[in-house]
């Protein structure tokens, strides 16, 4: 990594942290938190949806499981000075990762559209369980967590930092996966899973590693969210719109890229909040969602980052050609002959 790049990253991270410490009003801070939250969810989703090519609509289920895990844990335990709940996040992540392995093993025997349907079914199963396991979740009545004793004017800060930490974790994992044989195996699986079996890729294991890591991130983010919103109930914590929002953001920013999903969230979440504000509390913003999705599919089917990359690539080629005297150099014979 070049020095410039490293400095740029350090600057970006510092800026992201500082955003949480500028004195803005609560509702702006609220938008920041949700933007970073979705950036983390989308980046985590990308591990399985972008790298392995498995479009999961079930991530909201694991988000909800994380949320309930948080509330159930602190139903009878003290949250102390308010920081204890953040400390249990790794345990929630590991627990959900373990739980997701058998689920993923079954779900990932299917592919493409079937996988999307299986995972959205999983989402509704978890929602139904949240409704009906009343002794644990209090059903449709919902459940809450004690509000932490944070100072009022900086109340959102710890939540913002926690969400940012989750985003950074997701980005680090993505960065690592891209640079390891794990990422190569995932790319092979995305291209042609049957062929990947044939050249000896550990297909099932690699898919499960991606799936469990991805949903573990979703669950930890769900846990932070539950603590932030204080009160949860089944339709709120296990919400199909969360899954759809994540997919939308990843598609917009660019599947299978490091920064694409976060970029998508950076555009979609503030836009969604703006629409919700402008169009009132009605669900009209959902129409804007659908419209955005259509625009992406029509004009940026690869997403922003891959489209920019191929545009830059084309430009470079054109410049190179102009430099060589504006003539199209014919390729050598052995390139013409296969």
């Amino acid at each position: 990594m070049t020095v410039v790049r490293r400095a740029g990253l350090a600057l970006l991270l510092t800026a992201a942290v500082l955003v949480g410490f500028v004195g803005v009003t609560h509702w702006i801070m609220n938008i920041f938190i949700f933007t970073v939250m979705y950036a983390g969810l989308a980046t985590g989703w990308n591990l399985v949806g972008g790298f392995a090519g498995y479009t999961s609509l079930g991530h909201a289920a694991f988000f909800g499981i994380g949320a309930y895990a948080m509330d159930v844990t602190f139903e009878h335990h003290s949250i102390g000075a308010g920081y204890v709940p953040f400390a249990i996040l790794p345990f929630i992540g590991i627990g959900v990762a373990a739980l997701s392995i058998p689920l993923g093993w079954i779900a990932m025997r299917t592919r493409a559209a079937t996988f999307a349907i299986v995972t959205i079914t999983l989402l509704f199963v978890v929602q139904t369980l949240a409704f009906n396991l009343k002794s644990i979740t209090h059903g449709s009545q919902g459940m809450g967590i004690t509000p932490p004793p944070f100072a009022l004017h900086t109340y959102e800060r710890p939540f913002y930092v926690a969400m940012l930490a989750m985003l950074v974790l997701a980005l680090l994992i993505t960065w690592y996966v891209q640079r390891s044989k794990l990422g190569l195996a995932l790319a092979a699986i995305r291209d042609d899973e049957d062929k990947a079996h044939g050249v000896g890729v550990h297909v099932t294991a690699v898919k499960l590693i991606a799936f469990s890591t991805s949903v573990a991130i979703a669950s930890m983010i769900g846990a932070v969210w539950a603590y932030y919103v204080l009160f949860i109930y089944p339709q709120f914590a296990v919400d199909p719109l969360i899954s759809i929002g994540i997919v939308l953001m990843v598609f917009l920013g660019g599947k299978g890229t490091l920064w694409g999903p976060a970029l998508g969230a950076l555009i979609v979440v503030p836009a969604q909040q703006y629409f919700a504000y402008e169009l009132g509390a009605s669900k009209l913003y959902l129409i804007a969602y659908a419209g955005l999705f259509l625009v992406i599919m029509l004009f940026l089917p690869q997403g922003i980052i891959p489209s920019l990359a191929s545009w830059a690539d084309r430009n470079r080629h054109r410049r190179a050609r102009t430099l060589s005297g504006g003539q199209l150099v014919s390729p050598p014979l052995h390139e013409l002959l296969p």
Partner: peptide
């Protein structure tokens, strides 16, 4: 056909 250890190593 990388080993398990190589799977987590460089691409």
């Amino acid at each position: 056909q990388p080993s398990w250890r190589q799977l987590f190593g460089a691409r």
